[in-house]
Nucleic acid binder design. Structure first.
Lengths: 232, 232
DNA sequence: TGACCAGAAGTGGTCTGAGGACTTACTCTT
DNA sequence: AAGAGTAAGTCCTCAGACCACTTCTGGTCA
């Protein structure tokens, strides 16, 4: 077994066995090297691997710790890889988002939360009054993010957020021939979702959300823009 | 900006910009070090990070390559972190699986594929005739995996597979007082799913799959076994 | 007594250099 | 033309040194 793999397995085992729970601190690097039987370089590469996956966190000068192992945070790490997925794969991911977000939107509609409805209405007012692509993207993310959060499952919120972020790199809302038509269709979709939530109709909310995202899928399929995602 | 972060950003940028597409080969390590302005240690830690995320693959003696950037493969990498998530988080993830698998099962039912139905029936015959916990787990995974694959979205298949794998670490089917009752309920759930698929009823299939997984969630909530996942 | 500051110890971050292990391509032999 | 052997290219691992940051400790001063 390769040295780095040995270190990786050892670190994972320390967590899986319950020896180190969420938030626990690992021994110092030299001690871990002895314990795992690898050099410091190999150990550090293993630590980086688990760090990229959101399982371990190194704090300079302080130590190395197990993260909270919160599923939403771990899924958030996916954005590093999802942002590099080509368009073909993004379409597969959008189906996941469509299904999950329909579910979350239905749950949000069942909650009967006037404050949420006021927030959403405010976001839509701002969204409908702008034509700036970046602002559209941010407000769209806020709208859907608020709804997903109201759905009550942070994991769903994180997962849909990652996928939405990837889709946003393909700029549908570039000023162009179809801009007005696309924008109007999008705005109507958002209003339909809000209406279903306001009338506390989960089934209608799921349908509206599903249709709205399906529309996005159609635009992406049709546009097939140059797959050149912008990094943050 | 820290050295490793600089290397990480540089590597990602090379992929995101389109300079290196899926399957492309990176320059040798010394050359990359020059280009990115970091030492070999830092570069290698960055490569490991992207390797853990399924974006980059290093082949000993050959070179470092961009992976196929296939979303299913990238999601599969999640199992390394998901397998360490505590029970509380697993319940959130199971809701994701329930929603996605209901969707995939409905799609499978709409496909009208006699060969699939024969395969599923065979798996259930074997599943119903065993009481071995490990075999139950494998056959259960095969049953649900076949259905998800028939659903047509590999990303959904990968995602549900990762979550199912995590849930499997909690051994519901340990021989005990409730074993027979649990096993019978589980078997009935599987038959209900297969019946809906055989009668080509997507709505019934979605409902049956959703109910079956919801039952698993209930068992996990009730049992709250010692969270000691087994590593492969 | 309390707050603040300086130093010391602990810990991760980075760099350099060396040798080993594996893959690949080439060349020579049969 | 096929095979074995060789050489070049590349990643893997280790070791040691030094730097940067955090944390704790002890003392000082108001």
């Amino acid at each position: 077994m390769a040295a780095t793999d040995k270190a990786l397995a050892g670190l994972r085992q320390m967590i899986a066995s319950g020896e180190l729970g969420p938030g626990a601190k690992f021994p110092p690097e030299p001690e871990l090297c002895d314990h795992l039987g690898v050099s410091r370089s190999s150990l550090r590469e293993a630590v980086r691997s688990l760090g990229a996956l959101g399982v371990i966190e190194s704090r300079h000068g302080s130590g190395t710790y197990v993260t909270a192992l919160d599923p939403a945070a771990i899924i958030g790490r996916f954005s590093l890889s999802v942002e590099l997925i080509p368009l073909e794969g993004v379409l597969e991911l959008l189906e996941v988002r469509r299904v999950l977000e329909a579910h979350a939107t239905a749950a949000a509609a069942a909650r009967q939360d006037p404050e949420l409805e006021a927030q959403l209405s405010s976001v839509l007012d701002r969204l409908e009054s702008t034509t700036d692509a970046t602002e559209i993207q941010h407000l769209d993310a806020e709208f859907h993010g608020l709804i997903c959060a109201a759905g009550g499952n942070p994991t769903v919120t994180a997962l849909t957020g990652v996928i939405r972020g990837r889709g946003g790199h393909y700029r549908i809302f570039e000023p162009g021939a179809d801009f007005d038509a696309i924008k109007q269709t999008s705005d109507r979709g958002h209003r339909a979702i809000l209406a279903a939530i306001t009338t506390r109709d989960p089934a209608a909310a799921a349908t509206a959300a599903s249709a709205h995202i399906a529309q996005t899928e159609l635009w992406l399929r049709a546009l097939r823009p140059v797959p050149q995602p912008a990094l943050p």
